[in-house]
Write a protein that binds this DNA or RNA. Structure first.
Lengths: 242, 242
DNA sequence: GCAATAGTGTCTGTCAGACAATATAGG
DNA sequence: CCTATATTGTCTGACAGACACTATTGC
């Protein structure tokens, strides 16, 4: 039997399969805190609760493509840095049926975050992270007016992991730059780091570290419209990233 | 319509679904190098090539449970530290049909690795990692006799990611201890680190760092049967892990 | 005592935190 | 000049690499 003969006789429907979905944690920094965009569920199950934008994976669609499609169709965002986070496979995580979900982290600069929010359909949720000494622990979502948002399914776990991953990768990858506009000041970069870490950083040490690392290049331009000394504008220098 | 009425009318079979599998990277240290256990494929597709042990995820089985089942049934290992690695979802990664695979990293102490190998059915593959300056890059598998082993599907990518993850987590998590027996000497611990990193480490600095971290506790016992000064035996102190 | 490896002490360079000092915009 | 923030300089402590030195076992 050749390989193609074997394949012709193969029955792909022999066993019952879990459904496969992607869920997106659309992350940005709002008011000095990490935030995510959530949808209010209007349909059963768990109508009224808040959920991550998600969708099923098509039979001829890669996971990354499915995540991009959800980004486009449900959040109206054309492009963003997407990164696979973890795959959640508890048997009863969705009451409809067995759904295994591949969670993605999407990193949005403030402008893209605000634009998606203005498009309607999505609500900004500040992520409240109890400082459980680095461990990550649980995360709760709070509306911009301060009201707690009850999360659907296991989406609280997904958010908790997203924050943990963001923290872990902040210092040795370029994630912070994906949360900033093309040009930014060192103060803005430090603000992003501080928001994600939930802690203040030493300014001179931070500046020194960032400049020595060689990932940022001065643009020569400066901020405008400040009532004080304007800061120098930098851009992320992708060419020197490891 | 109540939630239970909604669920009763829900059709779970509306769309065609990808199949879902788990693949295990059974990792250990052999002859001072990172190694993995592979199976030779006897059936189409890709008969004759070398593959990671894997299996489909049951409809009422969590991903972790599926990984444990494969560990037990295909490798004959009762327990090991298992950790989800990444989910691979290229559309054409398997010629039989659309299969999305959740890759797991299993960490085996030398004795468990050797025992699984002695059980037959599995072959030890040394993982040859071109030192592409930290980036990870591609990994090739070589038999213990030095013959290259051609890998099936996208399993070379999975192995490459496994090595990269192992390197990344080596210094700030307890992965190294999962590759060692219950009691070990500091030299053995350093050997594991050096094998994974593929580089020599400074002995006194390594010892100092490991002891200062507080993750290891002296057992009071010492090695026996050496022709030279016997080293002190330590054990991993889980209670002081962050 | 010899060989071989375990284990320690100490010098040095690198780097982060602390904090004082200087620079520069608008008013 | 004043205020507010940007930006730099410098002291100091923590820590890793280098390497010489001491300890302990079997033979």
């Amino acid at each position: 039997m050749t390989e193609s003969e074997f394949l012709a006789g193969y029955d792909p429907a022999a066993y019952e399969r879990p459904a496969l979905a992607v869920d997106l944690v659309l992350t940005g920094i709002r008011h000095g805190r990490p935030a995510a965009l959530l949808m209010r569920r209007t349909q059963h199950p768990q109508a009224g609760l808040w959920a991550l934008p998600g969708g099923f994976v098509g039979i001829a669609e890669t996971l990354d493509d499915a995540a991009e499609r959800v980004l486009r169709d449900k959040a109206g965002i054309a492009r963003a840095r997407l990164e696979q986070l973890y795959t959640f496979g508890a048997v009863d995580r969705d009451p409809r049926m067995r759904i295994v979900s591949v969670a993605y982290l999407a990193l949005l600069p403030a402008a893209a975050f605000a634009e998606a929010l203005a498009g309607g359909g999505l609500t900004a949720a500040a992520l409240v992270v109890p400082w459980a000494g680095e461990a990550g622990g649980s995360v709760s979502a709070v509306s911009e007016e301060g009201a707690p948002l009850a999360l659907a399914f296991d989406h609280a776990d997904i958010l908790a992991l997203a924050v943990k991953r963001l923290r872990g990768k902040l210092d040795y990858t370029d994630v912070a730059f994906a949360l900033l506009p093309e040009q930014f000041t060192l103060r803005q970069l430090q603000d992003v780091h501080e928001a994600v870490l939930g802690a203040a950083l030493n300014t001179s040490a931070f500046r020194r570290r960032m400049r020595d690392r060689g990932w940022i290049a001065p643009t020569g331009a400066r901020e405008t419209g400040t009532a004080f000394r304007p800061a120098e504008l930098f851009r992320f220098d992708r060419s020197r990233q490891s």
